[in-house]
Amino acid sequence: MSLQPSSAGLRGVVVTHAPDEHDHASEHERSTHAALARQLAGLLGYAAGGEYRPGRHGASHLYFLPSTTLTTDQALALGIRGVDDLFGGVVPHPFVATKAISHPLVACGAMAISGWNPAFAPCAGDAVLAGYSVFSLEDARQAGMKLLAQGPVRVKPVRATGGRGQSVARDAPGLDRLLAAADPAELARHGLVLEQDLDEVRTFSVGQVHVAELTASYYGWQRLTRDNRGEEVFGGTELVVARGGFESLLEPDPGPDIRHAIGQARRYDACVASCYPGFFASRRNYDVALGRDAAGCWRSGVLEQSWRAGGATGAELAALEVFRREPARTRVRTRCVEIFGASPEPPPGATVHFRATDPQVGLLTKYTVVEPDVHPH
């Protein structure tokens, strides 16, 4: 839908946008993005304009909520020039928005994708786990065998989200079975990540959002749940959100594990900016895993990045709304929850983004809560 002609002359309109017709295919994603667009409109003092329709929104400024990270070419075609034009991010090449950028190639002369910058992996260093990005089956097997010498290997499709589609190889035959199922065309076009597998894993979220001259940073803890097919997937995040940049998260001291995760996320973020000119984002989220490797040693690293609206965005925007209402407030706790199947009513005061049966994923409830905090400042 679009705004009626009476919207002409509005200061601004927030619009959702799916660059690819296959993006946002599910009902719950469309509904959630529409709800997030309304929240963004409230923060900006704009109108909510529904889905983007060129030339039909009648406003002096369009603010975009894309379903994916945009490329530079896509952004320029929409008139997006900087962080005040969208909630999300812009990258110079599509692969930069996927897991593929996180790891080095397996060897000199290994196949790489156009635009690949070999400087990123040494820049990120131990901010990521041990692993390789590969673009051919031959390189994938070589990478897998190298990693198997140290323990089990996690095979990760680079474009999947929420942990979906991942498998673990524990020996060479298992690796071969997984790679035999890989699509060579998908591999050459987008890549595949092979990474050390960890046990006893905890996943932290570290991120930052900038909307309407408000900047907030956060750390949090993810939880997993089972979807209606029984697959383990993202089930929500609890966030501690601070007004200001990443440095605002360090006082009071969040503890060694979270402090280390914040440092790894900041390093990863800085390396993207230095190695891929043209990158910018008003929403940055980094998943950082902490767990034990096959030798029993604790390891941690950024698993993936997200520069688009994600599972934690309801909680992010709820925190910004608190900061907008309460100018003296510097910290807030928020929580977003996703529950598959039958569930109790969301708690009083929750912002419900979706509570219905989605034709693709089944019964699903998604909501956000602002938690009471005895130390709000």
Rank of each mutant, 00 (worst) to 15 (best):
S205K: 05
P347E: 03
F87P: 03
A97T: 04
H103V: 00
Q142K: 15
F340A: 15
R56G: 09
L224G: 14
A100G: 03
I113F: 06
T368C: 08
A124S: 12
A107I: 08
A97F: 05
G163P: 03
S67H: 14
V134Q: 13
A97P: 06
A35S: 06
R177N: 14
G58M: 09
G263F: 02
R335D: 03
R299E: 13
H24N: 13
L148C: 14
T225R: 08
A289T: 09
E51C: 01
G236D: 04
G235C: 01
V211G: 10
A350W: 11
F323G: 08
I101H: 11
G82H: 04
D183A: 12
L364M: 13
R325D: 11
L10Q: 11
A121D: 15
A172P: 00
E195R: 07
G109F: 11
R81W: 03
F340S: 15
A121K: 06
D73Q: 15
S6C: 03
E213N: 13
Q39S: 14
R170L: 15
V240Q: 09
E232W: 06
V158C: 03
Y276P: 04
G207D: 07
V337A: 03
D287V: 04
T98G: 07
S306L: 09
G207K: 05
R331T: 13
A169C: 09
L224Q: 15
R223V: 12
E232C: 05
F120C: 08
T330D: 05
F234D: 02
G362K: 11
Y219E: 01
A295D: 03
G291L: 02
P254L: 02
V211P: 09
G42I: 06
E29I: 10
R324Q: 06
L147H: 06
D139S: 02
P152V: 01
V332L: 05
L44C: 03
A315C: 13
P277A: 00
D293N: 12
G88N: 05
A281S: 12
L62A: 05
C275S: 14
I258C: 12
A172K: 12
G125W: 00
L62Q: 09
L317Y: 07
L3I: 00
A110S: 11
D197K: 01
I113M: 04
T72G: 08
K146T: 08
E138M: 02
P5V: 10
R11S: 03
A315T: 13
A18N: 11
G49W: 09
